[in-house]
Each structure stands twice: as structure tokens, then as C-alpha cells.
Simulated assay, not measured.
Amino acid sequence: MADTDVSGQLNTAGMAFGDLVRLTGQAVASTQQELNKTAADTTSALSQTLVDVIAVQEVEYDDAGTVTGAQTFTQKLPLIDVVDPVLYEWKQVRLQGRFSASQFATTQSSDSYVHSNTDSHGQAGIGLIFGGGYNNFQYDSSQAHVDTRYRSESSVGLLRMNAILEPRHDIGVPRPRQAVVGPSISIDAGPITDVGGPPAESRTMEVVITYENVDGDPIPGKTLAVDSAGVAWEYVGGVDQTDGDGQLTILLTRTFVDETADRTPVDVVVSVRKGIVSESTTVTF
């Protein structure tokens, strides 16, 4: 029986794959080193180059919350504050290998057998019926046998490589500071009162809104837009404009439908707006 053996071919393939892994690792490391050097050079150049950038942007409002003007303040800053250097890195490098090797062997054997037999018989004389004559008999036989055997061994394979090179996203450009010059709104929680009961049939809270100009002086006679995130509210005393102190008071009301209603204090967001000026705060009652 013939023997097959592909171990030598597979060993050679294993060595080749090992070399491929080693060379790929060296290539990745060398490329990443060059990428880092390029990024460092780029960052250094951007850091040493100064440009005029907007450091602060100022917007002015009047007492009605309308924009009346805007101006920007520039200063010399490194270009790196404006332009992000692109820093590339190998996120992933994957190798997958399958290899092929094959071998075929065959053996053949044969044998034969030949047999021959000859028998002769002669007769002579005079007869009334057959007369005289001669007879000869011969027997031949042969046999052949052929035996063929074969054996094969094979291995197939495939090689794949995936690599991802992408920029980093952990560096950003800082936004300029925003400065607002104009009126301001403040919201303060007032007293809480349970009405009816016990248990209370409703609960109220007074909220005081103050409207002031840029110098901190009150702005009287202004109507403010109010929103209380679904909780009912009304002007206290029916006054819907700020008074001489720039204040406006509203009354928030929670109504409990029956004795089993949940009376646990809840958070309510109160938002107040005048033109483009707005403010929000959370009160609990």
C-alpha cells in the first residue's frame, strides 16, 4: 500500500503564514509611526501659526427682548484652535489563513496463470463403415489477475486580510464664548397653601417673576409669556404686567379630584419669555 504525507507542505505553509504575520505587524507599526510623526509635525505647525479668531461674541437686547446690536471681539490665537489636525490610527488589522496541499500515490500488482494440455490419439486400419483415419485432441486454458490500489491526501486553503485606518474624533474646535448684554429674568418660588380638606382639595404656590435691565434696574409695565408645563396658573390680582419693582406674580394650582388622589409634591417647570430673552426653573409643591 502506498503512503501519502502532506505534513511537509503544511509545515512550509505554517512558516509562510508566520512570516506574513510578522511582516504585517512590522508594516503596521512602521506605518503608524509615520502617521504619528506626520500628526506631530502638523500639530506643531498649527500651534506656531497665529490667526485672528473670534474670542467673544456679544449680543445686546432692549427691554422688550429685541436684539439691538451685536459685536465680536477678536484676538490672536494659534491656528490649532480653529483647525483640527487629522490624526490617523490603525483601528484593526486582522489576518486569516487557510492553505492547500495535496498528494496522490498508487500501487499496482499483477499475476497470470497459463495451462496447456494436448491429447493425441491415432487410429489406422480397414473397416467396412469408418475406413482408416487419424484423430487429434488439444486443451488450452489461461488466467490473469491485476490488482490496482491508490491513495490520495489533500488540503485546501484561503488567505484573508482586513484592515481599518480611520481618523480620531477625540479632538474638537472650541466654540467662541457667548456674552449676552440685555435684560434678565429671574423666577422665585413663593408660599405654598393647601385649600380645603383635610385632605386638601387643591394646592397652590405663588411664583414671583422679576424682569430687570442690564444694569439691574427693574423694568415695569411689561407683559411676559409664561408656561407652567401643564399645571394651571393665573395672574395674582389679575395683574398681567410687571409692577414698579419689575415683578409679576402668578399662582400655580394643583387640583385633587378625590380623597385618594396622590398629594405628593411634584416638580413643575416654569418658563418665562420676553422676546428673545427667556428663563426656566423648576419649582416643587
Results as ranks from 00 to 15, higher is better:
Leu20Thr: 12
Val56Asn: 12
Ser186Met: 04
Ser184Met: 06
Lys222His: 13
Glu259Ile: 14
Glu234Tyr: 02
Ala39Val: 08
Thr204Met: 02
Asp245Glu: 15
Ala70Tyr: 00
Val208Leu: 09
Ala225Cys: 05
Pro218Leu: 10
Leu35Lys: 02
Ala225Tyr: 07
His121Ile: 14
Gly221Leu: 09
Arg22Cys: 01
Thr106Arg: 10
Gln143Asn: 07
Val53Gln: 12
Ser120Asn: 13
Thr107Met: 06
Ala105Pro: 03
Asp262Ala: 04
Ile171Gly: 01
Val156Tyr: 07
Asp262Pro: 02
Ile276Gln: 12
Asn117Thr: 12
Thr4Pro: 03
Gly157Ile: 09
Asp62Asn: 15
Glu259Ala: 15
Val277Glu: 02
Ala2Cys: 06
Asp262Thr: 02
Asp147Ser: 06
Pro78Trp: 04
Ser155Trp: 01
Asp140Val: 05
Leu87Phe: 01
Asp215Asn: 13
Val236Gly: 06
Leu251Val: 08
Val180Tyr: 11
Val266Ala: 12
Gln96Leu: 07
Val266Pro: 00
Ser142Asn: 11
Val231Ala: 06
Met15Ser: 11
Ser280Thr: 13
Lys91Met: 07
Gly18Ile: 05
Ser154Gln: 07
Lys37Cys: 00
Thr282Lys: 05
Asn213Ala: 05
Val236Phe: 10
Gln71Thr: 09
Ile192Thr: 15
Pro220Val: 07
Ala45Ser: 11
Gly244Met: 14
Asp140Met: 01
Ala39Met: 03
Arg151Ala: 10
Gln33Pro: 00
Asp194Trp: 01
Ser112Gln: 14
Gly125Tyr: 04
Ala13Gln: 05
Thr255Val: 15
Ile54Cys: 02
Asp5Leu: 04
Ile80Tyr: 02
Thr242Tyr: 12
Asn11Pro: 00
Trp90Asn: 02
Gly97Cys: 01
Val207Met: 08
Leu87Met: 08
Ala179Gly: 00
Lys76Ser: 15
Asp170Glu: 02
Ala13His: 03
Gly133Pro: 09
Thr12Val: 13
Leu10Phe: 09
Asp3Tyr: 06
Thr68Phe: 02
Arg160Trp: 10
Val272Asn: 05
Arg98Gly: 14
Ala229Trp: 00
Arg263Ala: 09
Tyr139Ile: 07
Asp140Lys: 07
Thr282Pro: 01
Thr24Ser: 10
Phe99Arg: 02
Thr223Met: 13
Val173Ala: 09
Thr260Asn: 10
Gly275Ala: 03
Arg98Met: 07
Gly18Trp: 03
Thr281Asn: 13
Asp63Cys: 00
Pro198Asp: 08
Leu35Gln: 06
Asp170Ile: 03
Ala40Gly: 05
Gln26Ala: 13
Ile126Met: 04
His121Met: 12
Ser186Leu: 09
